[in-house]
Nucleic acid binder design. Structure first.
Lengths: 327, 327
DNA sequence: TTGAAAGCGCTAACAC
DNA sequence: GTGTTAGCGCTTTCAA
């Protein structure tokens, strides 16, 4: 049994003669033998399953990350548990707890970290426990924790979108952002602010739920005040919500108001007007997270390096020059 | 240890005195003891994890089902593995294989069955294996396999949507459906056909990918032919795609053409025009699937009963009377 | 390079 | 109602 175990384990570095290896492989094939994952998990002290924690599985941004991650994981023999916290930190922590107890091999955090002391303390302790049993943790959104991370370039993306709006002539550009204590939002806001300051324009950030409804509500607030000529939304979902509110009001986009999003979720080229956005390649990000996680499990990456993935501005039809108002 | 094991297991029917039970609970609390899921899984021959197989996790219809299922499962101490087949039967089967090998407690099939002999044979054999080790299988969409099922009333839903269009005066109503070998589509088509025949109107079914792009493409085809005055799409995602094509062409909805969908995915009330659809309560369906699955695991349901869940027509702004064309 | 033996932590069969 | 015992199927010493 020992020799068979070694011959069948590609990760084992114990020497097995070529002949024996072949005989084992032949016997396994003949008998249809596959190692029992449960016995293996008990012995190895962890299961061949990874988990991905998202804020909202119904948001295409996260759904794309999950798509990429599950495909990459299954290609390497790992199952993927998906946990959708619905943006509730307590729900997220209770999922994390379940994952730790079940000794999942690793956890991908697709949702950004929260700047909240109690939450940070609990997440920190939790991660220590996971690493203690040999599990890996990788972040796919910015967090204060010193974790390995694969991130989209949030700051640059926001800067690109804002600069694009500035370049086509806008000066009054508002940003629809999410909760202020979310690190991902801080990075995107920082990119927006950088571009706006550079251009000497006044910033205006409004906060909303990171949902379609939230984007629509934020747009209502914006239009009822001194309406900007352009809006940069920190997520495509919010951008779509804002856009729907404009359509509802019969406001021409981009004629009267330009709008840009972030993420490049699938289907944007079919929206009317086709939404200008920043492509964050979420599926690739999810896959990169899995690769990084598996690398850590193999002990080939002990760093907390943060890999920042490139983003690109995708100019479509929802942004255009501001209307030259009568002067 | 045995007594402790029994005292801690809520499912055990072996008698344990109240005093002992209390002492065990106290000791467990004091020691922070939690049974090891891996050892338990090895012994019980299955893990406390269920799986849900969807066609496309990025489609809000499935995302909602997953949301409902994961919440219900985690509330009962089960983790949920999500497998998105991207509508490829081979991918789906390879996921199923992984799930069987990992001895998941049960599998929820959120995507409908395929009328394809080879696929049906393989799925049938797979399900036998799963049931053989004590796993449960539940369908959340119609399938030919004689499985336990929790389904939305696809037929009635399609009938309601079509009748609504008929009632407000339409006679030329096309249906945008999905692949012909998908049982879920057959049910919805059958509802449409029933209503149309009842009204003595001619049916017109066009097929498309069950995506946003597919819906848009189908609409192109429809408009380039003898355009109907109303369209019923077999999924909200396709309806949204069709709608975007109409908006692109500057066709007024519902003024020039009415459109209705199926599912009632989140956010439809913010689309313009707000989409009329059939509410299939996907999250509840996912939760019901989990409950049913757990019931079967407990041996409290050995039937292959098909529970059909009620659906409701939700009339919003995308449907209205046909324009009275010059006569 | 191979193999024997121990044991991961639990639960079920079987006494008592 | 409680306890003893025997594994579940694997991987990892340790010895040869």
């Amino acid at each position: 049994v020992t020799t068979a175990s070694r011959a069948l384990d590609p990760h084992s570095d114990h020497p097995v003669s070529a002949i024996t290896r072949a005989r084992v492989a032949a016997a396994a094939g003949r008998l249809g033998y596959r190692p029992n994952p449960m016995a293996r998990a008990l012995r190895r002290r962890r299961v061949a399953t990874i988990a991905i924690v998202v804020h909202d599985i119904a948001d295409p941004y996260f759904a794309e990350i999950v798509r990429g991650a599950t495909a990459a994981a299954s290609a390497r023999g790992f199952l993927t548990v998906v946990c959708s916290s619905d943006r509730d930190p307590l729900t997220e922590l209770s999922y994390a707890e379940m994952l730790r107890e079940n000794r999942v091999s690793g956890v991908l955090f697709a949702g950004g970290g929260l700047d909240e002391p109690r939450y940070r303390r609990r997440v920190g302790a939790w991660a220590k426990d996971v690493e203690h049993y040999g599990g890996a943790v990788v972040a796919l959104a910015p967090r204060p924790e010193p974790w390995a991370a694969e991130l989209p370039d949030n700051r640059l993306g926001a800067e690109l979108a804002t600069r694009h709006l500035l370049a086509i002539g806008h000066r009054s550009i508002a940003m629809i952002s999410g909760a202020a204590n979310l690190f991902a939002m801080r990075e995107r806001e920082s990119g927006y602010v950088t571009a706006m300051r550079e251009a000497g324009s006044a910033e205006l950030i409004v906060r909303a739920d990171l949902t379609f409804a939230g984007g629509a509500a934020a747009m209502v607030g914006l239009m009822d005040g001194r309406a900007p000529t352009a809006v940069f939304a920190a997520s495509d979902t919010m951008a779509l919500g804002a856009l729907s509110e404009l359509v509802r009001r019969g406001i021409d986009v981009p004629g009267q108001l330009s709008i840009a999003g972030f993420g490049d979720i699938p289907g944007l080229e079919f929206i009317h007007p086709r939404l200008t956005t920043v492509s964050a390649h979420m599926a690739e990000l999810g896959a990169a997270g899995v690769v990084r996680l598996l690398l850590r499990l193999d002990g080939e990456d002990r760093t907390a390096r943060v890999n920042v993935h490139p983003v690109e501005l995708v100019v479509r039809d929802s942004t255009g020059p501001p209307r030259v108002s009568g002067r």
